[in-house]
Simulated scan of single mutants.
Amino acid sequence: MNDLQIFEKMEFGQIRMIEIGEKPYFIATDVAKCLGYTNTSKAINDHCKWVTKSYIPHPQNKNKELEVNIITESDMYRLIANSKLPSAEKFESWVFDEVLPTIRKTGGYIHTTEDMSDDEIMARALQVAQKTIEKKSRELEEKDKVIQLQQPKVLFADAVASSDDSILVGELAKLLKQNGINTGEKRLFAWLRDNGYLIKRKGEDYNTPTQKSVNLGVIETKEGTRVHPNGYISVTKTPKITGKGQVYFINKFKSSKQISMLS
């Protein structure tokens, strides 16, 4: 069973998280409740793509477990984008600016309450520290493996791997359609170029993110290589929409002005 971590903010309540394969997964109903959905099951079914089952400790009985639905970061972003809660933007900021950076830096989030003793707080901190040490050790092992594998036979593999939660522009177009915005991949590419998110001048950098996109953190580039029949090797660059970018563009295109520009 994966360790359960709890994040709490008075304005929203609690969201619980477990880590699987060094990726955070959130209890779906917790996120939906924090975002003001009255029918949490419907919201999860309507907006989440990667719901799966997992088990967490039972809050009343340490010998039992609870089966729960868990979701990835990208599904949490989709719930944020579709929330009618006025403070959804604040919730997004809390997750982006505090929760996720803390998980990635330390491997855990130290949740404390006023009635906890210094010894209990220290014990929590030591647990997080131990997890951090274990995580760093695994990262060093993986780096060693990569160094050993970097022989000529692997030089033609993808040069830069993008985030697991990033999606292609065509997939973003499908997400926009699900949110009532009538567009397609070609029209969306054109809009992104015309509005300064992708480079529009022809050449090596065509359709790659502009500095504006990089600064916003909404589009990233996946680089790779292609071997041609004559032996020539060329570099390929594919723009991908980050998890943050999916929320950003869906919210942006929901205004009537942006919808009309894409139709």
Rank of each mutant, 00 (worst) to 15 (best):
Q130G: 10
V218Y: 10
D164Q: 12
A129L: 13
E134L: 02
E22L: 01
I199A: 11
E185D: 11
Q258D: 05
K9R: 15
A157Y: 08
T40A: 08
M1W: 08
K202F: 07
I27R: 09
K240I: 06
I18K: 04
E92H: 15
K53N: 10
N39M: 11
E134D: 15
D205P: 00
K240W: 03
S162L: 14
R201T: 12
T38P: 00
I110F: 01
L175R: 07
N63E: 12
L35D: 00
N207Y: 14
I103C: 07
N69D: 10
E139K: 06
I219H: 06
K222E: 12
P57H: 09
I20G: 01
L35Y: 00
A81W: 06
D75R: 03
Q5A: 12
L216G: 01
A28G: 03
S137H: 12
K135V: 05
S83G: 09
P59W: 07
F12N: 05
A190V: 12
S87I: 11
S137D: 10
K222A: 12
G36S: 09
R16D: 00
T102G: 12
K145E: 05
D194P: 02
V128Y: 11
N230Y: 07
N63H: 09
D46N: 15
K62Q: 10
P24S: 03
Y25H: 15
D165F: 07
I219E: 13
H47A: 03
A129I: 09
L176E: 08
Q130I: 03
V214P: 00
T183S: 10
E204F: 07
G245Q: 08
E139P: 01
A32W: 01
R226V: 09
G170E: 02
F249V: 08
R104Y: 09
W50K: 15
R104E: 09
T236W: 09
A125C: 03
K64P: 03
D144H: 02
L79Q: 06
L85F: 04
N251H: 11
E89Y: 05
K252L: 15
I259L: 02
E65P: 01
F253V: 07
Q14T: 11
H111R: 08
R124W: 00
D205R: 06
Y206Q: 05
K252E: 11
P209H: 10
T242Q: 00
F96H: 14
H58R: 01
K23R: 06
G107D: 02
M17H: 00
E11S: 15
H228N: 12
L262R: 00
T238Q: 14
T40M: 14
G170N: 06
I70A: 00
H47I: 04
M10E: 14
Q151W: 02
F91G: 14
S87W: 04
L126I: 09
E171G: 03
N215T: 09
V235I: 14
Y248W: 14
M1F: 06
V154Y: 15
D97E: 14
I103D: 00
R187I: 10
K42D: 09
L176G: 10
L172M: 12
G231N: 10
N215H: 13
M1A: 08
I20C: 04
Y55I: 08
R78A: 15
G245L: 00
E114W: 05
S93M: 14
H111C: 10
V214W: 04
S234I: 13
R16M: 03
V95P: 00
K42Q: 13
D158W: 07
G184V: 00
Q5M: 14
Q246F: 05
